[in-house]
Structure formats: C-alpha cells, structure tokens
Nucleic acid binder design. Sequence first.
DNA 1: TTGACAGTTGAATATGTGTTCATATATAAT
DNA 2: ATTATATATGAACACATATTCAACTGTCAA
Lengths: 120, 120
Amino acid sequence: MAKNEFICDCNVIHQDVVDSTTKSMPDADTFNKLAEFFKILGDTTRVKILFALDQNEMCVCDIANVLEMSKSSISHQLGTLRRSGIVKCRKSGKEVFYMLDDNHVKEVFEIGVEHIEHKK
Amino acid sequence: MAKNEFICDCNVIHQDVVDSTTKSMPDADTFNKLAEFFKILGDTTRVKILFALDQNEMCVCDIANVLEMSKSSISHQLGTLRRSGIVKCRKSGKEVFYMLDDNHVKEVFEIGVEHIEHKK
DNA sequence: TTGACAGTTGAATATGTGTTCATATATAAT
DNA sequence: ATTATATATGAACACATATTCAACTGTCAA
C-alpha cells in the first residue's frame, strides 16, 4: 500500500527520483509568480507591444498605430503589463509614454527568438 | 487627414517613431510563435513539470506524485509540452520517460527566476 | 467654459484552456 | 487468455481572458 495513495491516483515507480525531486522543488509561490510572468509574455499583442517598447518609449496612440489596433485594447494591455511590473510610464501633458521597466524582459525575449529560430 | 484613420481609432502623434518602429517589426508569424512559446511556459503545472524534468528524466507517474496531481492531468500537459517541442520522450516497456528537448527552456527559466527574485 | 483629444476603465461577449471523468491502448505478468 | 498497470485521449465543465463598446477623467486650446 503506497503511502501516496491519497494524493495521486497512481503509485510511485521510482521512489528515489520522486524523493530527491520533491525535495528540490521551490515553494508554490515561486512557481505561481514564474508562471504569471511567462503568461504575461504569452500573448501576441503584448509581445508586439514589448518589442516596440524595446526600441522607443511610446505613447498609447503611437503603439495603437504600429499594431493597427484600437487605443482601448492597447490601453488595457498596457495596464496589464504595468500591473505586472514589466512596463512603466511617464506622463507629459495629455500623453502617457510607456517604456520597459525591467531588462530581464529583453533577455527573455531574445532567448525566445533564438529558440524559435532554432526550431525552424 | 491621417493616412491611418481606417486602421486605428486615433491619429499618429509621433510619425517618425511610428514609422521607424513599424519598419523594424518582425512578421506576424514570428510574434505568434514567440507568444505561443511563452504561453506554454505560463502555467503553474507546466512550470513545475519543466522544473522537475530539468533535474531528471521522469515517467508520468513519478511526475504526478511529485506534483500531487492526477496522471491524466499530467499526461495532458506533457502532450502539450511535447507538441510544442519543449519536451521529448522515450519509451521503456509500459513506462514513458520525459525529458527537456531544448536547453533554451533552461535559460529562459533561469532568467525568469532572476526576474522574480529581483522584484521582491 | 466649451470643445477636442489622449487615455482609462467597467461591463459584456466570445474565445481559449486546465482539469476531471470515462474510456481506450499498450505492455507485462500470471 | 486474462488481469493489472502505465499512459493517452476525447468530451464536458468551469474558469480565465482579449477585444469591443460605451462612458468617463484629465489636459490643452480657443
């Protein structure tokens, strides 16, 4: 009678691997934040916005024109990106300029592109 | 009368920035694949699976035990990861061992963790 | 102060997705 | 052959989310 029977619907097959892996797993909070970070990058619109902002700080209307999408849609996505700490903004009169907050985004981005090129 | 009026619901404010950014944007296919790649990483269960596989190749039951989830759920996620070219597998009798396919995953992963640590 | 415009935001809708459940396949052992 | 087990998979459900629409705030100019 396996000790895990109330946790999973199957038996442990390689107890040593399961034990050592289990011991090395980070806490749930780390995994949640990690997944959340990637989830933010996992949308075509947001990826395009980030690519654009990687080159220039831009206002909402300009981004909307580059992506050929509505201001509202872009503004919603920028809100999501700002709340995730991936972009920040600066106000200037009626306009709001957005820019990347964190250079990790750039790194992750470039490796992602490499990955895709490599897979072709 | 702005030339973009039929595309967006707003005017171009900084024509030079919009033009140079538009010119440098990769094609839609690249953005779609990039977003797809990050989307796959943007799920807590898959992130956990990838973390585990980064240390040992493992069979479905073992992964299910480490994550304390059902075999079916893990199998579905492994299917997703395999179809995306992020993990590959090796059969041995009744068991199927999974492992990371691509080392870019490891790199992206580590930068993601750095990002999270940095934000605390 | 009035109008125009940049931007934000809540609600609604449409679409996508993760888990569960039931079932199917494949391999090994009796 | 039959049984047990490891894995896969289709359908269904619940939940999340991207865009649109409408309404709103705030700023500038006339």
